[in-house]
Write a protein that binds this DNA or RNA. Structure first.
Length: 626
RNA sequence: GGCCCGCUAGCUCAGUUGGAUAGAGCAACUGCCCUCUAAGCAGUAGGUCUCAGGUUCGAAUCCUGAGCGGGUCACCA
């Protein structure tokens, strides 16, 4: 419809004023609620061509459109705004198409393939609230891309090696007494996380002892540098060059790095890299526990992956590429032998790619892994990394380097960056135990949903299993919607003391509307009402719903190209608001005109269809009763 | 300090190439269950869109500067 109008407006200006204007200048938009009409054309851009007042220009163009576009049946002019009314027949016809299209809103196959990476956890602790946002976001974006006709591979890279997991391993060896998930009844990832925390606690104790003895001028260390530094530090504090707080922080950190525990963890990492059998076996065992735990969490979350990558496999990648890059002159070498990428042209600091001793850094393996993925999936149109915005700079550098290396596909790489979730008192700190655990949060929100549902739900006649199922549908739906409705780029505050709101603009609000529709349809079937209708007289609430339904394909497209499930959330919410208004002001089953009744049933059915479809793209289920 | 991002109602957020009187939800107040599910609907109140300039028919939106908040600039991952 928009296209027809654009074309006809250009035509009108050509005929009326003998001027050619760019079709870009014609921007039909939805008419605001307080005015009558469906589409509005702003005529200000045309007054240069018409050389007449905005009002008169709008009037003349309006008359032309009324005569020459059959779907337009009326128009009105307010200042420079030309409001056009589209005929009900046009909307009814559009509705027929929606009604008969089983995969309404979804684009035909595009032939493109995308890879979406999300989650990518460390294996030394369980998933937390930040992962929930990450995973729900990545999963929803993957679904939305599929709905846009693309083939999608969902993937994660599991950070299964490194100093962090060694810490858990050391602590378990020292204090674990052979504890296992089976023996303790603790979920595997939580058990490993418990020892990570244990390690930190013990290390802090040891560091504190060391630090205290320094304060008393007892230096057990054989390293005279530390003593010297410390004494200088004290002097600086006296001269107020640094604050006591900064001094404490700095030397506590130094003490931490000089603890026996820290040395042991480093040593274990070294042994792991050598392939020491004992260490590798312990590593496999404890990672195994973590994976069992993650599986349960992912299952509760209702997400999955098509392809897994492990850092223990990929951390070696990239070295040869960097060396080749050096030969080709893309990178340069410093006198100490380290290899760097010059990014001054891009106004960024130079980036280290290989240390002087030839070992790699994070960036090195990211380069290698990206190349690996494009080798494995030829024709990949895009690679989407769902990673927090603290790594914005990292990805900017990564994509720039890939491009410098001559990989044209680097343009298809996209960092799906999202804002951090903060608690009312600030950032979550795993060391301070303020992290909101994913399993705990999901459990408690389902409990909330349970008590709310028992209070006001329509659960009579449901089996115990069906009820439990409903509680988790509502609870998790609420949680997912809560995390997805905010623009990914923005940070958000989460207060664990207040449970997530399940009224208003929420998942359950939408689920409730869906359940009402299903109940309505069931009752209609029971009463033997038909859903087929001839042409009917419509009211503006009905047309309003059709207009919104008609937007669904555009919304999917937009949500896909902007990688934003939030756009879809807002759309579904608006649709439900409109439907609730319709539902509460227009009779459906009580309607005496059976033709109208049938039409309204079918309208409700299609609203339900779109709600279900949209919610499923978000990874949210909808219940038939609640 | 350099670079990046954010700032819209008391709170949480919409507002996509600049368009009409800036919109929702929560919280507050007022109405509505005659069983089409009140987890709902209708209404009231709440705003110098952080501030100051600029661009033009027209700015929350674009430009410049300032303020506040966050991130990053690691031979950490």
């Amino acid at each position: 419809m928009e296209n027809i109008i654009i074309q006809k407006v250009v035509e009108a200006i050509q005929l009326l004023y003998n001027e050619n204007i760019e079709s870009k200048l014609v921007q039909p938009q939805k008419t605001k609620k307080e005015f009558t009409g469906d589409l509005t054309v702003v005529v200000f851009p045309f007054i240069k061509a018409s050389k007449k007042s905005p009002e008169q220009t709008a009037q003349e163009i309006g008359e032309y459109l009324l005569k020459n576009v059959e779907q337009i049946e009326d128009f009105n002019v307010v200042k420079g705004f030309l409001n056009l009314s589209i005929s009900a027949d046009y909307w009814l016809e559009a509705f027929q198409k929606i009604n008969t299209d089983a995969s309404f809103g979804f684009a035909p196959t595009s032939g493109k393939t995308y890879m979406v990476e999300y989650s990518s956890p460390n294996t030394n602790k369980p998933l937390h609230l930040g992962h929930l946002r990450n995973v729900f976001l990545g999963y929803a974006v993957a679904n939305i891309l599929k709905a846009n006709g693309h083939e999608v591979f969902k993937t994660q890279i599991i950070n299964d090696r490194g100093i962090h997991i060694c810490k858990s391993m050391i602590a378990w060896q020292k204090f674990g007494n052979g504890e296992t998930p089976q023996s303790s009844g603790i979920k595997g990832d939580h058990l490993v996380g418990k020892y990570y925390v244990e390690f930190d606690k013990e290390q802090k104790k040891e560091a504190q002892k060391k630090f205290d003895s320094w304060k008393n001028n007892h230096f057990s260390t054989t390293n005279p540098e530390i003593i010297e530094q410390y004494k200088e530090g004290i002097q600086d504090v006296k001269e107020e060059k640094i604050s006591q707080e900064d001094f404490d922080k700095k030397f506590f950190e130094i003490a931490m790095n000089r603890t026996e525990l820290h040395r042991e963890a480093r040593e274990m990492l070294r042994k792991w890299e050598e392939g020491d059998e004992k260490v590798v076996n312990l590593w496999k065992k404890m990672n195994g526990w973590v994976y069992e735990g993650f599986d349960v969490t992912y299952k509760t979350m209702g997400v999955d992956f098509d392809e897994l990558y492990y850092e223990s496999d990929t951390y070696i990648l990239g070295k040869d590429v960097v060396e080749k890059g050096l030969e080709k002159g893309v990178f340069y070498q410093k006198p100490d032998g380290s290899i760097w990428c010059d990014l001054s042209a891009e106004k960024m600091d130079d980036k280290l790619l290989l240390r002087a001793d030839g070992t790699s850094v994070y960036m090195t393996q990211d380069i290698g892994t990206a190349i690996e993925r494009y080798k494995k999936h030829q024709n990949l149109s895009g690679l989407i990394y769902t990673v927090g915005n603290e790594q914005n700079h990292h990805f900017k550098v990564l994509f720039t380097i890939l491009k410098k290396l001559g990989y044209a596909w680097a343009d298809g790489c996209y960092h799906l960056s999202y804002g951090m979730i903060e608690l009312p008192e600030g950032k979550m700190k795993s060391r301070e135990g303020t992290v909101v655990d994913a399993d705990d949060l999901m459990y408690s929100i389902v409990q909330d949903a349970k008590s709310m549902t028992q209070e006001r739900g329509h659960i009579e006649g449901m089996s115990e299993g069906e009820r439990e199922n409903l509680y988790s549908t509502i609870g998790l739906g609420g949680l997912k919607y809560f995390l997805l409705k905010v623009d990914p780029k923005k940070g958000m505050v989460f207060d664990p003391k207040e449970s997530i709101d399940l009224n208003g603009n929420t998942g359950p609000f939408i689920q409730y509307a869906y359940a009402r529709i299903q109940s309505l349809l069931a009752k209609a079937t029971q009463l033997g009402y038909s859903k087929s209708f001839a042409t009917v007289e419509t009211n503006d609430k009905e047309i309003g719903l059709i207009k919104l339904l008609n937007d669904y394909p555009v919304v999917i497209n937009e949500a896909g190209s902007l990688y934003s499930p939030a756009i879809l959330c807002n759309y579904i919410f608006a649709l439900v608001q409109e439907f609730n208004n319709f539902y509460q002001t227009v009779d459906i089953l009580r309607e005496e005109d059976k033709n109208k009744l049938a039409f309204r049933l079918q309208l409700a059915e299609n609203v339900g269809k779109v709600i279900k479809s949209g919610m499923s793209l978000l990874g949210i289920n909808v219940p038939n009763k609640m």
